[in-house]
Design a protein around this nucleic acid. Sequence first.
DNA 1: GGACGTATGCTTACGATGTAAGCCAGTATA
DNA 2: TATACTGGCTTACATCGTAAGCATACGTCC
Lengths: 248, 248
Amino acid sequence: MKKTERASGNVTLPAPAGGSASAGGHRRGPLTRERILRTALRIMDEEGLDAITMRRIGRELGVEAMSLYNHVEDKDDVLEGVSELVLSEFEFPEPVEDWEESVRAGARAWRSLLLAHPNVCTLLSERRKPIGSPEALKPIEYALDVLHRAGLTEKETVQAFRLFGGYVMGSVTMQVGNMMTGVDGAPLMTPEELGAVLPPARVPRFLQMLPHLQECDPDEDFEFGLDVLIAGIRARVRRRARTASATG
Amino acid sequence: MKKTERASGNVTLPAPAGGSASAGGHRRGPLTRERILRTALRIMDEEGLDAITMRRIGRELGVEAMSLYNHVEDKDDVLEGVSELVLSEFEFPEPVEDWEESVRAGARAWRSLLLAHPNVCTLLSERRKPIGSPEALKPIEYALDVLHRAGLTEKETVQAFRLFGGYVMGSVTMQVGNMMTGVDGAPLMTPEELGAVLPPARVPRFLQMLPHLQECDPDEDFEFGLDVLIAGIRARVRRRARTASATG
DNA sequence: GGACGTATGCTTACGATGTAAGCCAGTATA
DNA sequence: TATACTGGCTTACATCGTAAGCATACGTCC
């Protein structure tokens, strides 16, 4: 290799060059881009995005921070790699005959993946590049196929694809950010402190819905959203079928 | 004030205590939490989230970094304040008689706000606290009212509220992140380099939809999503009305 | 008017971070 | 065997958030 390339093709050397099996960090193989990214991902999952530092990754691998630069471009490259690593884990479930059920399954799988790495939403929202990694391509193919089978036009298929993708991403972002619910079941706001801010007569709906705003089952909410989305698509397809048959 | 409080109630001093009108940074008034947050927001909008540093904010205000700590707790407090500042800008459009149009208008307004501050999505996804600021309460009230008028139950109203919120957030996140489109009209991937990775026969749908994946009109996509969501909700309400009348 | 506490700005300093530059020991190749 | 290269290490630097302490101006009370 001339420079630190992004290729994930890793040669397996029998012995690490100049590698002294050090104390503390457990070194169980040669240093690779792959191992660096997996370590960074684990750190992110366990301690958050800010915990990813070059020195930290190095310590975890029993190596100095600067050694990492032989395998990655810079820290951005690490974060980029972590994103791709997570995305590459995605497996679109094998489609079934019913497109609705296939869509549901795909959306659930996508959601599960994001929830398994809660900080990846933030990470993905930081990066400003398209997802088009080759590994992500097969799932996209599946998703497009399933949605197309629902009876959508080509353009609508792509739009629906983005719609589901965006919904899942937004929904997970709000869930892991505790944005619209109490934290750990604790109330978002008690009626008392609410009353201190705004006269209750001004926010009748809010007070009326407060119980449902407090306790919130993310899974149930997600399924509700899926139902609505699918019903909406079904309605659109059916309506077009009707007007088409009326015209033709 | 004993300590640096989070209250935005600011006393207006006639003259800044110990304030020497300095060079470079233009000081046009007393240093306040408000001015700090507005400056941080502007920096974020113009140069990104990472450009927000205490020293940078200070320079912009003609003040040393440490002086900021008289008005804000720490950097997290600044970011928190910026979030709230943006959120407080939201104005739910005055509802009209048609709930669908009201929902559309509300979602568009929420989207416009996020697009006006593209980095706020990342910022919001970093913070792990509910949105419950008092200013955000009025828009929530409006939204709940509008959705309830659509004929949803209380629980469904809250779920639909979260659904629209999540959809808008996810959709904007994907748009500003260029996740599912070519960057600036540049192709996501040319058929050639795609063919080098995967045999075209394996991804027929992808190739078929490629033109639509490339050129993407975010506004149009967003409206498509809105249509689907609203159609889905309409279908749900109508179906319940039908079964209810059949039962009763 | 003078003394004093408080609010608010400034200076200095410390540890952490990303990373440029250069060093050095093994390995592969001529 | 001489040489170049690979992949580790060490050192050094600019920048970051912020703790500690100092200086100055104001409001308040005698």
